[in-house]
Design a protein around this nucleic acid. Sequence first.
DNA 1: GTTTAGCACTCTACCTTTCTGAGTGCTAAA
DNA 2: TTTAGCACTCAGAAAGGTAGAGTGCTAAAC
Lengths: 347, 347
Amino acid sequence: MALDNRKKEVLQAIVDDYVATCEPVGSKALIDRHDFMVSSATLRNDMAELERMGYLEQPHTSAGRIPSDKGYREYVNSLMKVDRLSDAEGKEIKEKLSVSFDEIAELLKAASTALADQTGYISLAMTPKLTSSYLTQLKMLMIEPGKVLVVVVLSAGVVKNRMVRIPDFLTQEQIAQISNAVEQGLSGLPLSEISLITVATAAKDNQKVELPEALLNQVLYEAYTAIKQADNLDVYMQGKHRMLSLPEFSDTKRAQGLFDTLSHDGLVAGYVDEVTKQDEKKEYMIRIGQEITLEGLDDCSFITTTYNVGGKVAGNIGVIGPKRMEYSKVISQINFVRMMLDEKLKQ
Amino acid sequence: MALDNRKKEVLQAIVDDYVATCEPVGSKALIDRHDFMVSSATLRNDMAELERMGYLEQPHTSAGRIPSDKGYREYVNSLMKVDRLSDAEGKEIKEKLSVSFDEIAELLKAASTALADQTGYISLAMTPKLTSSYLTQLKMLMIEPGKVLVVVVLSAGVVKNRMVRIPDFLTQEQIAQISNAVEQGLSGLPLSEISLITVATAAKDNQKVELPEALLNQVLYEAYTAIKQADNLDVYMQGKHRMLSLPEFSDTKRAQGLFDTLSHDGLVAGYVDEVTKQDEKKEYMIRIGQEITLEGLDDCSFITTTYNVGGKVAGNIGVIGPKRMEYSKVISQINFVRMMLDEKLKQ
DNA sequence: GTTTAGCACTCTACCTTTCTGAGTGCTAAA
DNA sequence: TTTAGCACTCAGAAAGGTAGAGTGCTAAAC
């Protein structure tokens, strides 16, 4: 059975009010704050009906109603009006993102800060995913005999480096030649197709100097792990402890559960990935309360979207807030940040 | 007026009990848990006296006593017995620190993790201070025309890199020559003595290629900022949200105040620096409650110590916990970690 | 059929009161 | 100087009482 128009309005009004106050909403309060052209008794009937249908719940008999996960879901799917960002706010975000950046990491940090400040919730920005990047450069720089800095540059503007050890009688020339050979053989190859074997083949096909097999393999192995390590997603998260001021987290147990999960970047990154796959075609992905399969986030909602680098789907940005979140506002804020990122990363 | 022996014992016992239970300690409980050879009435008199002298306070008339900041101070200065770490625990820490590390950052991260896990409080590990390091290498690596990765290597094993932009018609050879010249001129120089002028002088003295002055200056400026940026202390902090499970932070307001301050790495680093200077000769530095001049840490205590690189004072590690901290245990843990670091960084 | 007024009912939040017991300080004797 | 004893204090738990926000249901009105 579908919701009739008035029930929709009622649900929408209840979500709006609850978001604003974090207090259960009663029929009287609803009449007071909105111009329903009916009496409170009618709303009471509607609310009872909405509860029966699972859109609302009652903390206890003599309290008002609060939205259930299903209620929020209906709200974000079809009830809320997505409002445009105010010009002032747009300008503010723009300013925060007008950093000059040489590495994508800097831009993402700025984006994460802007999102956290603007929404007041927890923000998230992740470096581009490996599936969408390929190797463009590999450099090996001898820092001191036996110690080499491997610099990996990926297509999406990601630069990673890692210090490795090699036999200390190798010269800068020798390792430069090896890295050149590997670079030549692998550049343009998606990260997912790079393996120890492809690295070795590349080196042998393009290399000019002669080196004992075992020695060469050791260097190649280090190069390979450095490349593989570059595909680790970096996660920039900000504003975590702002959640402590929300009434839903006044219980430190809950807050701790949330923080425990959030402190595992990998968990969060993996979840975002999963969600992105599920909702592939959507402009933004929303997960509400129990829909989130991460522990400790049952009272939260999660909104993410993807940004593009050079026109291709790259990484994710997002916001984690209470279920009682200002959805439409947050969505427009995320969208705006996404657009800004896309533009800056068009190249 | 000095404390007589029994009063010392009483104070010590009260601190021990309060640390263990977080409940005000009364005269009866004290008799029950310790073998004082006197009656509770006698202890009551002593406790009243200790309160008059400022070592104890009473939350309210009919409650037991808790240590004041002054009481804790007396405790750590002369009452507590610093116990040796158990072999088992030593082994555990050793294992956590037995990472192979190529950059000091990795080792410090491991140290911070070990400290947090072992103490159950907040741990801190900071990269070596600039005053104790000098430049050993400067490399510039062209990533693509106009984009150069500047790698700065400092004496203490710190490696930092930064992407910068330069005019895009400069070749790898040209910038390599410039960086070589600067490296030659500056290597061995303490970071504090490096300025834009010394950089320029170094370049001009050692450089062979001819470049227009303005162009050269632009590159030098980027090199200079990269070097200067390398002296930023990195702070590794772990276990923050464990504080939420302590009764003293069950009030989210307090927890938020603490987290707000701790989220500013610079503040904390600056404070550690200050404390280190004040207590220059000491093996470890302790600050208790109000003694800490950082906002939001009035209910905390702060224990730091310094580790050495190549036998010279370098950076700091430390622990932030509640005032009601197991001081002697934490001190021996920190000491052990410090010793391990010193050994690994002897080189 | 839908809406509404009216009413009895429910239940939390809050306040007040009472009670308990841990802990105190003081006094007077040992 | 120490101790037993006692009156006193006060936070916190327990119990009782009230207010009011909110409900569901019924029967009348539209």
